[in-house]
Structures are given as structure tokens and as C-alpha cells.
Design a binder for these strands. Structure first.
Lengths: 249, 249
DNA sequence: TTCCATTCCGTAGATCGTACGGTAATGTTT
DNA sequence: AAACATTACCGTACGATCTACGGAATGGAA
């Protein structure tokens, strides 16, 4: 797992929050800018995965020497921070409807976001980049949950629980598709390659509940469908449970 | 994010499911065994993180040349698969109580597991190693959810939703502690380093809900506490929601 | 004793991030 | 116009890392 939040704090915060500032006019005119570097890095990661997001490849995508990047960004860790916040800023979070509709809107937006940027799943979210994207999301969800009337401590925990579930479920969903493009092998083919498992290794007596569920048609046709199904059902259950808490206060 | 399930299928399945087989007696006597390699790799990752789990370091921990490992394991990807399944096999899943007690038992066990092996968070769970650990977990949860009386398709989706949430929440919890030991910097110090943010950058007017929640005491004292709080509340809400579904069938 | 299946491992090539120091290009000053 | 200050560009090199290759070592079998 890639870790973010490891660079020099002040410098990273400056890069995250700086407005488009005017150049002093002095010195050599830049061929690239920070924004273009982040954009190129995101494009590489979207296309070929986070492992392929190397300084070499980002520089090549910009038609620039590798070491040029270090003029604009302190290092790869900081670049990752900027990529994450740039992605989060893509969320279109406009309040509409009751708190539940707003959370569901957030969930859909996040699902789409991970679909566009499946590499997000591979970045640690402890010690996240303290940028505009993170705070916009947090403010939106806290504002939505305020509509439940829950006390502040519970509302805050509910937001964190929602974020945890939605990020994980959306990430898993997106990762299925990414695994197919990166490996060049469809999930169906991946399972076909492991057909021997069911034929020669799996012991129905050892796993009766799995066998029973199989016989009862409990398994979705594809792994991606199962993930989507779990996302939908899980979010509904989670929000139902949170709604039930409001009647106790 | 590290990816598993990338190696030769038949070979990996053989390694995952092989019983302790007898040696033929011919050839040079081995200094190491597959089991010891996996054990050492897990120990290195526990101690120093997944990034530090290099073939060099694992071999060194065993007092053996790096290339010796490749006699016993096809490559690093397969070793990772074996590590993950070995970890999952540590779960002590004995059915006791009703379905809800069983799921809560699973959640506690998983939380402890991630605490012992925080690197688990960094391994992709799409295309997982099809080993005994995974199937034991799945069978346990499907068996528990059978107690709800939900139809098979919904029970299966509920299991996936629970796994998604519990893995994410437990992983986040464990990652807090790991971040402290790996970086040598406590979470409190990390925030102190970013104090400037609140003093110079954060704009209360731009994020009213965050500011309001702050004033209402909505934030936990520490990030780790917030994560634990979210885990507890989220699991309760999720299970309440699932329980509510059973009354409709 | 000879053979040989099996394990051990040194070397080397490719791919990373990035420290270092030099080069190039512009506006400003003289 | 010439020199300077400032900024951006980037070639080289070093240390990790995974692993392909092939040879050396070992000890039972023939």
C-alpha cells in the first residue's frame, strides 16, 4: 500500500492549498507546471495502475526529463498526496433532498470516482492529504448527517462509518474492472483457470454452508455483480441502522 | 497496492492446499521449508511493513541466500498469497450464540488479526488466494447469516457487505498503530506538525458543518478513537439494518 | 564408487526513486 | 549591449529491488 502524508508538512500543505499564483517573471519559463504533472500522473495511474505511476513514466508523458519533475514537486510521496486530493475534488457534492438522499448521492459520486481512478483504493487513508477535497467531502457529509438530529459525536462517527464502507465497497467494485484491464484477463477467465479447484480440491463436506448457499442459488453470476449487490444491500442496511438510531434521541 | 492471485493458478493452489508431504529422501536436505519462509515473511511484514517484505530481507531472516527462496516458492506474488491465507487461517471461528453474536465474534477476531498483521490492509482482495483461510471465513459467515432466514442471494450479499465493512474498519484501525511504529511519529505529533493548517489555512466560513461539529464536541480526542468509534457504530447500524430486512421475508 | 535428484546461491540485468551538479533560458540591472 | 540574478531543465550515478541463469554442493540410490 502506498502511503501518503509522509512528506514535509508545510511544503505539502502549501502545494495543496495554493491558488494559481502569478509567476515572478524572472528566470527560465517553465515547460511544465505542477497542475500538468498531477494531471499526467493521474492519467498514467488511471491507465496502467498505481505501480506504473513512476517518475520516469510521468515525465515521459509530459515530454520532459525525469529530474525536471523535482523542480515542481518535492518527491513521489507528495505527488501522490496531490493526486489523491485532486481526485477527491472531482466529487460533485451539491446538497439536495433529505440526509439519506444526500448520502446516497455521495455514494454514487464516490462509486463513479473510483471507477475513473481505481488506483485510489491502493492509497492509505490514515494521515490523508489535508486538502480541499477531503474537507469538502467531510463538510458535505457532516452537514447531511446533521439532518438526522443525532448528537455531534454520533453524527461524526456515522460519517466515518459511511466513508469507510463506501470507500471500501466502491474501491472493490472499481478494482474488478481494473484487474481485468491490467492483467489482460477477464474475471471469467480467471475463474476458468481455477476450475480445477472446484473439481479436484474443494470438499463440499468441509464447507457445508458454502455448498448449501451454492445449491440455493446464493452466488451471483459474476464477482463484479456480487460486489455491486453487496454495495447496494450494505449501504441500505447501514443507513437503515443509522436512521433507527435517531428515534432514540 | 500489492496484488495477489497473479501467479500460475495450479502451482499456487497446490501450495495453498498441500498437506505436509513426505520428502523423497533423495537430493540435498533443505535448510528451509515453505512454511518457514511464509512465517519469516509474515514476521518481517508485521515488524517493518509490507514494503520491507523483500526477498532479500526474508532470506536474511532465515540465514539463507536470496535465491534459495525461489526453490520453494515461484515468486513474490505467490509468497504474498500464502501469507494472506496463512493469516486468515489464524481466525478462530467457532459458532456460538445467534447469528448476530457470531458476526460480532468474527468482527472482533478480524480486528485482532489486523492488529497482529497490519500489512493485510495493503493487499488487494479481488482475486484472493483460494485457500483454506478464505473458505473457512466464508463458510462461517454464510452459516451465521443462514440464521437470519434471509433468502440465499441476500444472505450472500449481506456476508460480502459485512466482510467489506469489517475488513476496511479493522484495517484502518490497525493502520493507525502501524503508521506510528513505521514512521516513528505518533499520530499526535503528526497533527502537531500540521497545526499551521488550522491556524493559517482552514477557513471556518468555507466549512461550516465541520466548524459546527467541532464546536459541538463532535470530534474524538484522537484519530484512533474516532476510527474505533466508527467501527462500533457502523457495525451496529449495519447489523440492525440486516436484522430489519428479515422481517420482510 | 558412480550417478543423479534436489537444494543452495553468486552474478548480472532491468527498473525504481532521487542526490548532485552542471547547463540553459529568461528578466533585470548596469 | 553586456553582465547578472534567478529559475527551470536534465544527464549521470548510486543504491534497492525482483528474478533468470547456471554452476556448486549434498547425500541417498544404483
Amino acid at each position: 500500500m502506498e502511503h501518503s502524508g509522509t512528506g514535509d508538512p508545510r511544503e505539502t500543505l502549501r502545494l495543496l492549498w495554493r491558488e494559481n499564483q502569478v509567476r515572478s517573471g524572472r528566470g527560465r519559463p517553465p515547460k511544465v507546471s505542477l497542475a500538468k504533472i498531477v494531471e499526467a500522473a493521474v492519467a498514467v495511474a488511471d491507465q496502467d495502475g498505481l505501480d506504473a505511476m513512476t517518475m520516469d513514466k510521468v515525465a515521459a508523458a509530459l515530454g520532459v526529463g525525469t529530474m525536471t519533475l523535482y523542480t515542481h514537486v518535492p518527491g513521489k510521496a507528495e505527488l501522490l498526496d496531490l493526486m489523491v486530493d485532486a481526485a477527491w475534488r472531482e466529487l460533485d457534492l451539491v446538497p439536495a433532498g433529505d440526509w439519506r438522499a444526500q448520502v446516497e448521492h455521495y455514494a454514487r459520486q464516490t462509486s463513479n470516482l473510483h471507477e475513473r481512478h481505481p488506483w485510489l483504493r491502493g492509497v492509505s487513508t490514515v494521515r490523508p492529504p489535508l486538502g480541499p477535497g477531503l474537507f469538502a467531502r467531510q463538510d458535505f457529509l457532516l452537514s447531511a448527517l446533521a439532518g438526522t438530529g443525532l448528537p455531534a459525536a454520533q453524527a461524526s462517527a456515522a460519517v466515518d462509518a459511511i466513508v469507510t464502507f463506501v470507500e471500501a465497497a466502491a474501491g472493490a467494485q472499481a478494482e474488478h474492472r481494473q484487474a481485468e484491464t491490467l492483467s489482460g484477463q477477464s474475471t471469467a477467465d480467471w475463474w476458468t483457470d481455477r476450475q480445477v479447484f472446484w473439481e479436484e480440491i474443494f470438499d463440499p463436506d468441509r464447507y457445508p454452508a458454502i455448498t448449501q448457499s451454492w445449491q440455493d442459488g446464493g452466488f451471483d453470476r459474476t464477482a463484479a455483480q456480487a460486489t455491486t449487490h453487496a454495495f447496494t444491500l450494505g449501504l441500505k442496511a447501514l443507513l437503515d441502522g443509522i436512521a433507527a438510531m435517531t428515534s432514540q434521541h
